[in-house]
Each structure stands twice: as structure tokens, then as C-alpha cells.
Design a protein around this nucleic acid. Structure first.
Lengths: 262, 262
DNA sequence: TCAGGATTATAACTCAGACAATTAAAAGGG
DNA sequence: CCCTTTTAATTGTCTGAGTTATAATCCTGA
């Protein structure tokens, strides 16, 4: 029990068959060792396996234990450092930074978050943030949208209808809709934020799907938002978006708390 | 003129005197080659020296031209990739990703943004985002703050008063105030967002300082927010925060446009 | 006993050169 | 013209060495 065996084989098994299972399912970063390791370490940090303040074993030992080269290991650490999760200094080692410094809104970090069961508080916080930003965004979109934006949103809405949130294509359409809406706000910073949150929401949607069949058809809610934006009714857009998010929150909470109640 | 000379000497000049100038002034990442390079490339991408879709010269040539090792170069690229700014694939090379995928709210990226004169639109967008999130945050803080939060905020406020925004200590106090406020909201995601934006605001404050003496004493505005939160008056907190940001926006715009007008 | 400066040991950092794996693009075959 | 095979360019990975920064220790002197 001296050498801990890796939980899942970090690297693709020598020359085995192609792993269509994970690769095709939105989990990118596969096939690159440094990415895979960053992923694993990131998840471990988020799970608390490595706690803030704790220093990781040094490069030599770590890479040896993981049976990868120092280069690959270092690149993984560089990725985590770029996301504010670790900090390396000569002689002092690499230590997990304080939680406040983590870039929780980084799309990849959010993805890692939803890999495990995210804490109830965090999900609530995320929806709270959505309730703050997205209605405001809808309002701006209603004021600034062009016909081009409208067309993209309409297309996405139709796609959501034909496929559903149960399919990958449907979830992509959902993302497209929100992305187009954010583009319509003409605010890059806001768009960037919502892009991140959107990714997280997509993860949570998958999460919901796993735990219970989707209760509600989300398309009508979306269409109300769309219509309001189309007729440039900013206050209606705000209100409809708010109600859309509240619905989603309700669904999510139902599917999450179901394991706590009874 | 075949080999382009580096603009600033990426690496510390062999054994010259210590560079207290930059190091002590909030510019971290110095002294680490990969960090310095990521910084330079990041700024170049943001400036449009490398445009989205463009592929960078390959690792071998790049590292040779920059006179650094491939490892250091690769780690720099890994950092940029982690921030969504580039994407590498074997045979295809490393290309600058679409602007929409950049993590503009990453604190480091925001820092790079303000390194050069950021576009007027971007700054406006940032303030728009502040106007959306921070009043809402103040409202939540008023509802959820504990005495401990209040104490920290009060301390920061006093510090802002004694030092001013003209000093590093004063700007830090400003950051502390906003950070404490965000902690009071008990919303990690919101706090993470505001931490990023706060960093950007600090940069823009420095920017303002460079171009004109600060016109207004910001402490009274902050104190009004503080008082509202102290007495748990959520709507007042929202309103005061909104007005605080509008003032800051006004100052910033004045100092930015001054170079266009006459 | 303690403060401050020199020393040391440890970690990250950088380097060089080789080989492997991936894949876009070209070549070839039906 | 489409599909398959080959090729070649590029990133990815590995190894092993030396360098540099710095936390911790030791030492000196007050």
C-alpha cells in the first residue's frame, strides 16, 4: 500500500480500442495527458481531497507516482495555476490557494464542479447570480437586438423544440439561444459571464436528467422571452427571463433535494 | 532585420541589479519565464497583434526566436489555453480562439486588458456589468451581513480615508471593502465575479490616476453604502451602491475621453 | 536570549535533445 | 467523384541535467 494506484488510468491504455464513450460526450481535454491530469487534480481540489493551504508533493515524486513525465505534470500545474487554484514557488512547493482566489466562473472549473455532486449552497448561489444577471441581460437585449440576433435566437428555439433537452443537440440549442441573447446585449463582459454560467447550467441540466425525467417543457418559457425581445419590450423581457430562471431553479432544487427529503 | 529583437528583455538580464520597479508594484508573475511570456502573448492577443483564427508559429521556431526553451514556451501556451485564448492540436498548431471564448473576467486577463488602453466599449460594458451585479450584491449583503463582516468593512473604509486612492494601500483598502461586501452576500459565485471585476476596477483606478488627479473623494459614497448595510436597509444599500458606481463611471469616462477631445 | 546576516538544502524553474502520437493534407485507388 | 491510404508537420511526451530562488537553518555578535 506504499504506492497508491491511480483511480482511473490517466492515460489511454496503450493501443486499445478508441474510447468513444467519453470523447464524444462533451468531455474534451481527453487524450492530452496534461489536460487529463489538470482535470483530475482540479476535481480533487474542488472535492477537498487537497485543501487550501496544503502543499502538493513535489514534482519529482508526484510525476513518478502518477507515472508521467515532469513536463506533463508541470503543464497540468500551470493550468491549475492559471485558474487561480494553486500557486508554485521555488523551495516552498506548490500549494492550494485560498478558496476565494479560485476562478469559480471559469467554464472548465464549473465543469469540474458539476462532475461531483456540487454543494447545494453553491448551486443556489449560481442561480442567484443568474437571477441577477440574466434578466438584466434580457432587458438590454430587448433594447439593442438586431434582426440578425433575432434570427439566430429563433433558430435555436426551433431546435430546442425538435430535439429536447434530453438530447445533446437540444442542450446545444439551449446554449445557442442564451449565447445569441448575450450577443444581442452588445456587452462582451456580460456575454463572457453568461457563457460561463450557461456552461454550468448545461451541466446541471444533465445532472437533472440523470436524476429524474424532466418535468416541464422549457420551450414556452423561452419563447415568451424571445417574443418580448422581438418586440423590444424590455421590461417584459426582464420579467419573462426572471420567471424562466425561477422555473429552472425549482426543477433543479426538486431533483437535488430529493435525496435529502425522505 | 530577419530576426525580430524582443521588445523588452523577457528574462531578467543575467546578473544585473534587482528590478524593484516592477516587482513591487503589483505586477506578479515576474521572474518566471513562462509567466512573463504568457503575459506578453496574452497582451498581444488582446491588442490584436495575433488575431482570432490565426495560428502562431510552431513551438520550435517560436521558442528559438524568443531564445527560451520549448518547455517554458509550452507552459506559457498552456496558461493561455487555460484562459480560453488559444487552442493547440497536433499538426494543426496553436491558434487564437474566437473572441467569445476568451475568459474576459479572469483577473489576469482583465489585468492584461488594462495594460494597454482598453477599448471604450469594453470599459463601458464592464461598468454596465458592475451596475447590474454590485447593487444586487449590496442588497443581499444588507440582508445577510454579520457583525464580523461589518467590522472588516468598517476597517477598510477607515483605511481608505487615511491613505487615499492615490496610494497602493488605499487601493487595497478599496478592494478589501468590496471583497468584504461580497463575502457578506454569502454567495461564492457572486464573490468570485466581483473579485475579478474589483481587480479590473483597481486597474482602471490606477489608469485614472495616471491621467488626471482624482476629482472626487470616494469615501463618503462608500460610507453611505456601509451605513445602509449596517442598518440592514437593503433597498438603500442597492440605491447607494448604484449611485457610487455611476460616480465612478463618470470619473472614468472623463479621464478616458479627455484624450480624444482636444 | 535574541536580532541579523551568512549558509544550506530543497523545491521549482529552465534547458537540450530525442522519440511518440495525432491528424490535416496530400496522394492514390476504386 | 468519393473513399482510403499514405505522408509529413506539429504538438505531445519523455529523460536527465543544470540553474535559480528562497524557506529554513546556522552562526555570529550584541
Amino acid at each position: 500500500m506504499t504506492t497508491s494506484t491511480p483511480r482511473t488510468p490517466l492515460r489511454r491504455q496503450s493501443k486499445s480500442m478508441s474510447p468513444a464513450g467519453a470523447q464524444s460526450f462533451g468531455l474534451n481535454f481527453q487524450g492530452r495527458l496534461h489536460g487529463a491530469l489538470a482535470h483530475r487534480l482540479g476535481v480533487d481540489i474542488l472535492k477537498g481531497v487537497y485543501q487550501p493551504g496544503q502543499v502538493l508533493p513535489n514534482e519529482i515524486d508526484s510525476s513518478a507516482n502518477l507515472d508521467i513525465s515532469r513536463s506533463a505534470y508541470r503543464e497540468a500545474i500551470r493550468i491549475l495555476a492559471a485558474k487561480g487554484m494553486v500557486e508554485s514557488r521555488p523551495k516552498a512547493g506548490t500549494r492550494v490557494t485560498d478558496r476565494k482566489r479560485w476562478n469559480l466562473l471559469d467554464p472548465e472549473v464549473l465543469g469540474w464542479m458539476f462532475e461531483t455532486e456540487p454543494s447545494d449552497d453553491f448551486v443556489k448561489g449560481l442561480f442567484e447570480l443568474r437571477l441577477i444577471t440574466e434578466p438584466a441581460a434580457a432587458e438590454l437585449a430587448a433594447l439593442r437586438r438586431t434582426d440578425a440576433h433575432l434570427k439566430v435566437m429563433g433558430k435555436a428555439l426551433d431546435d430546442m423544440d425538435t430535439y429536447t433537452l434530453a438530447t445533446e443537440a437540444g442542450r446545444k440549442a439551449d446554449l445557442d439561444f442564451h449565447d445569441a441573447l448575450m450577443n444581442a446585449t452588445q456587452n462582451e463582459a456580460l456575454a463572457s459571464l453568461s457563457h460561463s454560467i450557461g456552461a454550468a447550467v448545461a451541466w446541471s441540466t444533465r445532472f437533472k436528467q440523470r436524476h429524474q425525467a424532466l418535468t416541464r417543457d422549457p420551450v414556452p418559457d423561452h419563447r415568451r422571452v424571445f417574443d418580448a425581445i422581438a418586440r423590444q419590450d424590455s421590461s417584459a423581457a426582464r420579467w419573462c427571463m426572471e420567471s424562466l430562471i425561477r422555473m429552472a431553479l425549482e426543477d433543479t432544487q426538486k431533483s437535488m433535494n430529493i435525496q435529502y427529503l425522505d
